[in-house]
Design a protein around this nucleic acid. Structure first.
Lengths: 297, 297
DNA sequence: ATATTTCTTTGACCTTAGTCAAAGGAGTCG
DNA sequence: CGACTCCTTTGACTAAGGTCAAAGAAATAT
């Protein structure tokens, strides 16, 4: 991997300082207008009602601290705490009408602030800004996603495959039968590889490599969570799979795709895959691809 | 002015939330590694020594709070507090050797963090990110600058004109004589207008409009602080001046520029100014421009 | 020379943010 | 049924962040 240049680092830090000072400060200020920031944030996170347990995990808060904040918000009439019937140890927290009003007001103020900031710009400048923000956010998200080699039987691996199966089941006209998924032992150790991409601890994409025949690998189940598409994540998964293939001494990798997955086909072509005749007969496959790997990384 | 669309507002807020959560949090964390955030920030702001008074103004801190933080940093051997001879009420705060080492370490950590974030991106993606960050920052800066009509004799107006005079004195081969600046009464009230652009309270650009003859205005002293150039600020100043000219019932505005100010000439042309013969004989002028104004705003 | 302003220091005080541990009620598993 | 785990509540405590007002010293205005 190429080292990061000093210019990129300093540009990033310059932006960072500028942004947190100019905007971040403002942001905190409006949020905690007349309420402690912690409570304001909590109010914001509740949404349509969650358990304290859930909130505690999501915001990484101390149980005691959260309990007290919840009580304080309840005393202010902004939330309601209830006991769910299925597990009376838990507490559900949900917004009252007053809480929703308060939240709406918070949002209104934040919107007004943002709008006020943008008014001095001309419409083309606003468009340019919006585009630059989208690019920045996309790339920062991508940068924050890490790809890990996991055991094919690992919980995260199975969760990804289940999501993948459910996803394509709706996209393939004939549906998809789960028994066609790779078995854990096919993608573990010497036999192959399984990669999971994590964003903030949550699995968001996967890809599998298995042995097709000696010296030939097969790539399967390259999948990206709908919320993480269009970031370039599939390409990164593919790169990892190819690297693993080289490490497994495969000289060729093959794969097949379904007729409806046109974006996938375009991506494989763009990544150096050439279409070949069917190398295996398969219900779901309509296009077959192959790529020769060079030993050099 | 066009109203801001909801999409621009929500894109901005989405980015805002994402960025402050992802990056801002990290940022605070590294800064306050083993030191309270307030002190870490203070250390960062001292630079090459400033007075407590200056810091207090810049960071909007309570005098007592600041005094105590400064003492705490002094006790840790990171700063030195001295009394300036010219005003013994003040205290100067400056970094000791240990303070500079500490600051360098802080910076090193922050750089490493930024670099770590960028490593997963490919070089073209890094370039794309850096460019998007620069665009964002430029436009946010521009959005944060406000332009105000001020009295020609106001302190900020004179400060801008002094800076302008000093600036062009170095750029004109023959130097520049301050007596050629507009007099306050020429640009005040019915006679003309004077605009100052403020960025975070500091005057960063100016522009003057005076009466040349009945119905004809003259634009003079359009100047932008070197630190605020290439943002599109001069154009905004010019727009304000033209708006003021319409309000003064001028049907034409004229201006002259010096031969060396080629960027200025290009800007005037791009803004609809046509070159005309000399309308006044002037030591510094070599190009003369004119624009007819339509009554409609 | 006197009054007023400016700047820092100090004491007193408050809220927010957060941690830790004990305790108790409720589920779960063998 | 008993042991164990899970989840919340409560008490006790700490540090950080911040405000306010009084006081003292020095500079500036009148």
């Amino acid at each position: 991997m190429e080292p990061v240049t000093d210019e990129d680092v300093s540009a990033f830090r310059r932006f960072n300082r500028y942004f947190t000072r100019r905007i971040g400060a403002l942001d905190d200020h409006y949020l905690g207008q007349d309420r402690p920031l912690g409570e304001a944030r909590l109010l914001f996170e509740i949404g349509d009602g969650v358990s304290l347990r859930e909130l505690r995990g999501r915001l990484a808060l101390d149980a005691g601290y959260l309990s007290r904040m919840a009580k304080s918000l309840e005393a202010q009439g902004l939330v309601r705490l209830t006991v769910p019937p299925h597990d009376t140890r838990l507490r559900l927290i949900e917004l009252t009408r007053a809480g929703r009003v308060e939240l709406k007001e918070q949002n209104r103020r934040a919107d007004a602030l943002a709008a006020g900031l943008l008014t001095t710009l001309t419409p083309p400048q606003r468009t340019e800004l919006t585009r630059a923000l989208a690019t920045t956010q996309r790339l920062l998200r991508l940068a924050g996603i890490t790809i890990a080699l996991v055991d094919g039987a690992a919980e995260d691996a199975r969760a990804c495959l289940d999501a993948y199966a459910a996803d394509i089941d709706t996209r393939f006209p004939e549906g998809f039968d789960k028994t066609d998924l790779v078995r854990p032992e096919e993608v573990t150790g010497d036999a192959g590889a399984f990669f999971v991409a994590y964003e903030e601890g949550r699995p968001m994409a996967c890809g599998a490599l298995r042995t097709l025949e000696p010296g030939v690998g097969e790539i399967r189940h390259v999948w990206v969570h709908p919320a993480a598409r269009r970031l370039g994540l599939a390409r990164r998964i593919l790169t990892e799979l190819e690297r693993a293939a080289v490490a497994h001494d495969f000289t060729v990798v093959r794969l097949d795709t379904h007729a409806v997955l046109t974006e996938a086909q375009a991506m494989y072509r763009a990544c150096g895959y050439a279409e070949i005749p069917a190398y295996v007969d398969h219900v779901y496959a309509s296009h077959w691809f192959e790529k020769r790997l060079t030993g050099a990384r």
